[in-house]
Simulated scan of single mutants.
Amino acid sequence: MGTTKYEAAVPAALELAGVAPAHCAISAVSFQGLTVTTADGRPAKLAVIDADGNVLDAGRDVENAAFKVAVEAYRNFLMGSGHLRVLAKPPGSGMPQI
């Protein structure tokens, strides 16, 4: 008597309809975090830009922080813990709570 091996069909990527930026792609892998690429596939950086167009911060640290905040917010939602806001800010920055 043999065993039968079943393989689940797993999509290579899940596309989110209606939320894609116009000139880049943003992807996430649970063990790698966020990755940003241009429309033609070249590496890009995630940045925080103020209302005047100044780049306040950019790069891997921003990508890691954005990913961790999103994951923590989702975990809080799943646990029903009532924490609807998750904040990441520089230590000792004195920045106000949002």
Rank of each mutant, 00 (worst) to 15 (best):
A20P: 01
G33R: 07
Q32Y: 06
G33T: 08
R42G: 03
L46C: 01
G41C: 12
R42I: 00
V29P: 00
Q32C: 00
G33Y: 02
V48A: 13
Q32P: 02
S27D: 14
S27G: 14
T35S: 13
S30R: 14
D50W: 12
A25E: 09
D40E: 14
L34C: 05
I26K: 11
T37I: 09
A39V: 06
P21D: 03
A28R: 01
P43A: 05
S27A: 14
A28I: 09
Q32I: 00
A28W: 00
P21V: 02
F31N: 15
T38R: 10
A22Y: 08
Q32R: 14
S30V: 09
A22K: 15
S27N: 12
T35V: 12
T38Q: 11
T37R: 15
G33H: 03
V36I: 12
P21I: 03
S27M: 10
R42W: 00
V29M: 09
D50Q: 07
G41S: 07
I49H: 06
F31I: 08
A28Y: 01
S30H: 13
C24N: 12
C24E: 05
S30P: 13
I49M: 05
P21G: 03
T37Y: 01
I26T: 04
V29T: 10
I49N: 04
A28H: 05
F31P: 07
A22D: 14
A20W: 08
S30D: 13
S27L: 09
V36F: 05
A39G: 11
V36N: 03
G33S: 08
C24H: 08
L46M: 12
A25I: 04
S30C: 03
V36Q: 04
K45T: 05
T35G: 08
A22R: 15
A25Q: 04
G33E: 05
D50F: 09
A44W: 06
D40G: 04
D40P: 04
A20M: 12
I49S: 01
A25C: 07
V29Y: 11
S30Y: 13
A20T: 12
T37G: 01
A20D: 07
H23M: 06
A25V: 09
D40I: 00
V48T: 07
L34V: 11
K45R: 12
G41T: 06
T37P: 05
A47V: 03
D40F: 00
